[in-house]
Amino acid sequence: MLFWAAVAVCAFLLWPTSLGGCTTLTIVSGHSMEPTYLTGDLVVSRCGEPTVGDVVVYQPHELGGARIIHRIIGGDAAGWQIQGDNNDWVDPFAPTDDEVLGVATFHLPKVGLAVTAVTSPWIWASLIVLALAILVWPRDDEDDDGEDDDEADDAEADQVVEPARDPAVVT
């Protein structure tokens, strides 16, 4: 019962916004949020009411689905002023509340690098090629007769070998 309760809580907390949930997972790429977040960090953000000072993940309509993770430095729900911690300029976008996917809750340093490696098509293609190579690699036919080498050695050891007699030697 506790296991299913834990699964339900995890599902509720991690259900993605793309499926109607409230959680957005973002892998940081770039230097605009240093030193707060570094490239490869996984940031978990949850829906909520953003305020000035919060780090938010937003998706401007102009970028066709790309996400940006920056800090709110001003504005309101009608249009926030956003800036990266390591940037000298304010973002050219003024996202509204409907473009903000979530407020950053916590991050896992460098976990995004592992996720990126696992989702890489090159990694998967390499694993498939390796699996196929192992599958079709030619095998030694000597071991395919069904008799184990140890059993053959045991059978030879059980045979009694008499010494050879030389007919030329007379006793």
Rank of each mutant, 00 (worst) to 15 (best):
E142K: 05
A11K: 00
T17A: 11
W137V: 09
D97Y: 03
V129N: 06
V161C: 10
G79C: 01
L113N: 09
L101I: 05
L13V: 12
A133F: 11
T51C: 09
V160T: 14
I123Q: 10
G146I: 02
F3V: 13
W80K: 08
W89G: 09
V56W: 02
R139V: 04
V118S: 11
R71P: 06
R67Q: 12
A8S: 14
Q59M: 15
L25G: 03
G74C: 05
V100Y: 00
A114N: 09
Y58R: 05
W15I: 05
V129P: 01
T36G: 07
V129F: 03
G74D: 10
G64Y: 09
P138W: 05
P95E: 02
R67E: 11
I123G: 03
V57Q: 03
R71N: 05
Y58I: 06
D150L: 11
V111E: 06
R139K: 11
Q159E: 15
G20A: 07
P35L: 07
T36M: 12
R71K: 14
W137M: 13
I72G: 04
E147L: 14
A125R: 06
D88K: 12
G48W: 02
K110Q: 13
W80N: 05
A157K: 08
D98R: 09
I128N: 07
E99N: 07
C47L: 02
F93A: 09
V160Q: 15
R67A: 04
G112D: 08
D41C: 07
G112H: 07
D85P: 00
V7M: 13
I27S: 00
R139I: 03
V169H: 12
